[in-house]
Amino acid sequence: IGSLMYASIFGNVSAIIQRLYSGTARYHTQMLRVREFIRFHQIPNPLRQRLEEYFQHAWSYTNGIDMNAVLKGFPECLQADICLHLNRSLLQHCKPFRGATKGCLRALAMKFKTTHAPPGDTLVHAGDLLTALYFISRGSIEILRGDVVVAILGKNDIFGEPLNLYARPGKSNGDVRALTYCDLHKIHRDDLLEVLDMYPEFSDHFWSSLEITFNLRDTNMIPGSPGSTELEGGFSRQRKRKLSFRRRTDKDTEQPGEVSALGPGRAGAGPSSRGRPGGPWGESPSSGPSSPESSEDEGPGRSSSPLRLVPFSSPRPPGEPPGGEPLMEDCEKSSDTCNPLSGAFSGVSNIFSFWGDSRGRQYQELPRCPAPTPSLLNIPLSSPGRRPRGDVESRLDALQRQLNRLETRLSADMATVLQLLQRQMTLVPPAYSAVTTPGPGPTSTSPLLPVSPLPTLTLDSLSQVSQFMACEELPPGAPELPQEGPTRRLSLPGQLGALTSQPLHRHGSDPG
């Protein structure tokens, strides 16, 4: 009997000691992992102490058991019943959930998450997105703005933001810190809205009876308010094209079509300037034949640059190039080494500058006005007194259609001029006259002087055409309008007829 009692007592005591040691061994194993994590990542002392304290409290609170892992091991129907039991206190005593059906309560219970916070733990920081609604079931918390405590909340209090009033989550206007050990039930806004969409009859009752104890939403960050730039940057990543407008005076608003859609830094370009900076079609017209890549860069430059609305530039004389043409100036200075066709295309550029300027006046029909002061630039669209967005969009579309028509007509005119030049060069190729044979009589004449090349004649003739079109064909006081194609086609051969009437002889060394 004594040996039996000794064996039973010894066996029970050893089993008890073994169970104690097993729990202690698990605790030390998990604690060792936490300390190894702290050492590996070199976490500083204040945060390291918070980690160790939280682990110790969580171990004593749950005995080292992962409740979520245990809950996920059950089937979904059983999980709903378990969640309904775990959140029964909240669902029974909170006013917004009263009167809900059994199915609605089960769906809500599945969406709730339980959070346990030790003292000093910050649940929400200032500036964080308010993605959830919090219900306090135990403990107390404090809300701070800077170093000032603005509120202390306790059991059955609710904090967050009214989700039904805002389409997008706002930002917190303060820090939420736990004063004691707290148990909180939180539900994400997407989950709550999903359940309320499934039960629309409960939705009206819920929003009407929901009383948020403390609204954390920062009202200064609401979209459309003066301080909402940061919020707009976070939620409006896919922005449309940006529009900046110059201020319109009362006198300017009476004149229709007073602005032109141009790229940034293009205030001095012609009315047909689009795409790359520098001139019509993204580059100076005089350098068009020598740089074919300008047409390839036109599309990307047009689509990537934001639109700006600026006044037209001052008018340019008909014979003056659009500006920024070092290529043609070098050719004029060193005409001995340049291609003979460069002079002809220089005359073509003069005609283009004249036609572009006159067509700009035809479509816009307003006098040039000086540029406004820099303080009046970049007025935002949302400022008071601005035109409605639809009106601005319609004006932009009208300007775009005008620019497209202008570009089409300029292309047709350019093709006409090039065809005339090619026809003239085919009839009378460039050549130098040879020395004529002296006559049989004693009164022999001296050799004839060489005839100037055709490109120079073409430049003079085209300059005469531009001056003739600019000065004589337009009646005084009438708006400057571009001439039609047949009129220009008839004027060019008439001007060139006198020049080509002389018999030109080919030089023996000319390969053409």
Results as ranks from 00 to 15, higher is better:
V176D: 02
A431G: 09
G439N: 15
S463E: 10
N220Y: 13
Y432H: 08
Q424S: 11
P511I: 06
S137V: 09
N173K: 10
P321Y: 15
C338H: 14
V465F: 15
D297R: 12
L193K: 08
L481Y: 15
Y432K: 07
L403R: 03
T213G: 04
N404L: 11
Y432Q: 14
S394E: 13
S172P: 03
V148D: 13
L327E: 07
Q464E: 15
S463F: 10
G323R: 03
R302T: 06
R217F: 01
E332M: 05
R217S: 11
L457T: 13
L406A: 08
S358K: 04
C369W: 09
I158P: 02
L454G: 11
P256Y: 15
D252E: 08
L381T: 09
G268L: 10
T458W: 06
S353N: 08
G360E: 09
P476V: 09
A267C: 12
P493D: 11
I158E: 03
R241E: 12
L129R: 10
D190F: 04
F345N: 10
I152P: 01
A478R: 09
Q483E: 15
Y181C: 03
G288R: 11
I143W: 01
N215Y: 01
G441C: 05
D191N: 03
S452D: 09
H505S: 05
A478I: 12
S172E: 01
T249C: 10
P300K: 15
A498N: 09
V392L: 04
L457V: 10
F245C: 11
L231E: 12
S501E: 07
I187Y: 02
F312S: 09
T416K: 04
P482M: 12
P169S: 05
T437M: 11
S272R: 04
A470Y: 15
T213D: 05
S291V: 11
L481C: 09
R246M: 14
F345I: 11
L449D: 12
P162M: 08
P380A: 10
F214E: 03
F312T: 10
E472M: 06
P493V: 11
R266P: 12
M221C: 12
P226A: 03
S305V: 10
F202V: 06
Q402G: 07
I379F: 10
D175S: 07
S411H: 10
S383P: 01
H507G: 13
S286R: 09
E332A: 12
K240R: 10
Q364N: 15
K155P: 10
N164Q: 08
S244G: 10
L366M: 13
P162S: 06
G441A: 11
P292S: 13
L262V: 09
N220W: 10
P479I: 06
L133R: 02
V150P: 01
S358N: 07
L192V: 03
D397P: 07
G160L: 03
P476L: 11
G160T: 02
Q424V: 07
L474R: 05
D250S: 11
S294R: 05
K251F: 13
K333G: 09
L474K: 07
R237W: 07
T229H: 08
G234C: 12
P475H: 06
P430K: 05
I212K: 03
P226V: 09
E194H: 12
Y181K: 03
P511H: 09
N378W: 13
I222N: 12
R266E: 13
P169V: 12
T436Q: 10
D204W: 07
T437F: 10
V259Y: 10
L129V: 06
S411R: 11
Q483I: 13
E472G: 12
P374Y: 09
F135E: 01
V176M: 01
S433F: 10
L406Q: 04
P292R: 14
R405L: 04
G139A: 01
S501W: 11
K240T: 06
L504T: 07
K240Q: 10
L403T: 06
I141D: 01
G233H: 10
D460M: 12
K333P: 08
Y199K: 02
R308I: 07
K171L: 10
T249Q: 11
S444G: 08
G170V: 02
S349P: 07
T249M: 13
M198F: 10
P475S: 12
G234Y: 11
G324K: 09
Y363H: 09
Q422F: 04
S358A: 10
A261E: 14
L420N: 06
P285G: 06
S433M: 09
L309I: 04
E201Q: 07
M221H: 11
S433W: 01
R247Q: 10
T180C: 05
S452H: 10
G139S: 01
S140I: 07
Q464F: 09
G360C: 11
Y134T: 07
P200S: 04
T458C: 12
V195S: 02
L449K: 10
V348H: 04
F135P: 03
R302F: 10
S294G: 07
L492T: 06
L262P: 12
A434Q: 15
G477A: 11
R395I: 11
D357K: 10
I351L: 12
R239H: 11
R237E: 11
S304Y: 04
F345Y: 04
S208C: 12
L192N: 01
M414R: 03
P340Q: 11
V176Q: 02
G323N: 13
I187H: 01
L418G: 06
R239T: 09
P476F: 06
R316W: 07
F202D: 13
G170Q: 02
S466M: 07
P300R: 06
